[in-house]
């Protein structure tokens, strides 16, 4: 039960202008676990994920990856740490000037120094796995939302990252596609069981199938950390969130 800690946040705070979006966040993500991040819209989940990836610099506290403070790493150190990462962005963030194939091949070409044939084979296999074998040569603008999400997923996981961050991977998708996305996340995690995985989602029911622990953010503060079995001690808002909309509504952004 004491797997090594991949990412640790200590008293993490982030503000935009004068508004604190994250405050006093203490958090650990362990190797091998899937951590679910939940919370109302606009309360800092995506900002948290970007801080975990070093895309945003904290205004208070720090983020440690394998014990190293991201803010003190410098470009080379940060590059080395980022080779571990796979990041699915909330709004796909596909490179719109590249085909699907090149999007997915991009992280391998940048980091892995593999022969071209090997890269092509891996890309084709990963795209087939997400059900997009037919879309290799399409451009992102020719894809539907669900297809873009799957390409984003394929791009983030093609290198079997040791730290995988998924920002709302099923947002705006139909139930069938959503289930498929969560199955894919589970499969990626099974392939690399020592990976630290963080999934941001509103889809609590589907998260149950894959998440070991949860963090709930409200107004940028952690209001709950733990497994669902620990919900008994949690504040009412948290229970309401897990109970779904019919039990109690939670205020949005």
């Amino acid at each position: 039960m004491t797997a090594p800690v991949a990412i640790r946040c200590e008293d993490l705070g982030k503000r935009f202008d004068d508004a604190w979006v994250l405050r006093g966040v203490d958090l650990e993500v362990r190797r091998g676990e899937v951590l679910g991040v939940i919370g109302p819209g606009g309360h800092g989940k995506s900002v948290l994920l970007k801080c975990l990836a070093g895309l945003l610099t904290p205004d208070a506290g720090r983020v440690l990856v394998d014990g190293e403070d991201l803010a003190r790493l410098g470009p080379l150190g940060l590059a080395r740490v980022r080779e571990q990462y796979g990041y699915v962005f909330q709004n796909y963030a596909l490179f719109d000037f590249m085909s699907v194939r090149d999007n997915v091949a991009f992280p391998l070409r940048q980091q892995a120094h593999l022969p071209d044939a090997e890269i092509d084979a891996r890309v084709a296999a990963r795209l087939a796995e997400v059900g997009l074998a037919h879309a290799l040569d399409l451009l992102p603008r020719e894809l539907s939302g669900g297809m873009k999400k799957r390409v984003g997923l394929a791009r983030a996981t093609v290198g079997d990252p040791a730290i995988a961050l998924y920002d709302d991977p099923s947002a705006g998708l139909d139930p069938v596609t959503s289930s498929k996305i969560f199955q894919l996340i589970a499969r990626m995690h099974a392939r690399r069981p020592d990976a630290a995985t963080v999934v941001v989602s509103h889809d609590v029911d589907r998260m149950r199938a894959i998440c070991d622990r949860y963090v709930m953010l409200e107004r940028g503060r952690v209001v709950f950390v733990g497994a669902e079995s620990a919900l008994g001690d949690a504040p009412e808002v948290v229970a309401a969130f897990f109970g779904g909309a019919e039990r109690a509504p939670t205020g949005g952004g």
Binding site: K50, F89, D96
Partner: peptide, 17 residues
Amino acid sequence: SMVVTEQVDALRMCNAD
């Protein structure tokens, strides 16, 4: 537009400065 659609963040995550 690459910045506001997070493509630049995606480049950074792939270690493409």
